[in-house]
Computed example of a mutant assay.
Amino acid sequence: MKKTLFALSLIMLFPIGANAETESSTADNAPAATEQTASIESPTVNSGTIESSGTVNSTVASATDNSEVKDIQQAKDDTIDQIEKETGVKKSSDPIGSEHDTNKIREMLKGETMKSIITPSEVDSYTDQQLLNAMTLCERISSDTYGLDVSGYARILQALYKDKSLSWDKIENIMNYNPSNYTNALEMIDQIDSLQAYLAALYPSNSSFMPIRQMSNQELSNVLKYISPIQEKMIGTEGDFFPGIIAWISRYAEKDEVRNGVTTSSTTETSTTESSTVTSTTNSAENKAPAKDNNDKKEDKGGFLPKTGEERRTWLTAAGVIILAIIAFIMIRRNRKK
Rank of each mutant, 00 (worst) to 15 (best):
V60I: 15
N66H: 11
K76N: 10
P15N: 01
T37I: 15
A32Q: 15
T37V: 11
P15F: 01
S25H: 08
K70Q: 13
V45S: 02
P31L: 07
D77C: 08
K70L: 15
T37Y: 11
S25G: 05
G48N: 09
D65Q: 12
S62A: 14
E35R: 12
V69S: 12
P43T: 03
E51T: 15
P15W: 01
G54V: 11
E21W: 12
A61K: 14
T37S: 06
V56T: 12
P31R: 05
A32P: 04
S52I: 05
A30T: 14
I50D: 03
I40Q: 09
T37E: 08
F14I: 12
I11L: 09
T34C: 04
L8N: 01
F14M: 07
N19W: 13
S9C: 01
Q74W: 08
E51P: 00
K76Y: 10
L13S: 07
A63F: 06
S53D: 13
A63H: 08
A75S: 15
E35W: 04
T55W: 02
E21L: 15
S25M: 09
L10N: 00
N66W: 11
A18G: 05
E21I: 15
T34F: 05
Q36E: 07
A32L: 15
M12C: 01
P31W: 03
S58Q: 14
D65N: 13
T49N: 09
A38F: 06
L8Q: 02
E21V: 15
I72Q: 10
S58G: 06
L13P: 01
A30Y: 11
A18L: 15
T44K: 14
V60M: 07
G17F: 14
A63K: 15
A63W: 03
A32E: 14
P31D: 07
V56W: 02
I50S: 02
T22Y: 08
S9P: 00
D71I: 10
V45L: 09
T59R: 05
N57I: 04
A32G: 07
G54E: 08
T64F: 11
Q36V: 04
Q73E: 15
G48Q: 07
T55Q: 05
L13I: 09
S42L: 05
T26Y: 12
L10E: 00
A32D: 13
Q73G: 14
G48I: 05
Q73P: 03
S47A: 10
K70S: 15
T59K: 05
E68D: 07
Q74F: 09
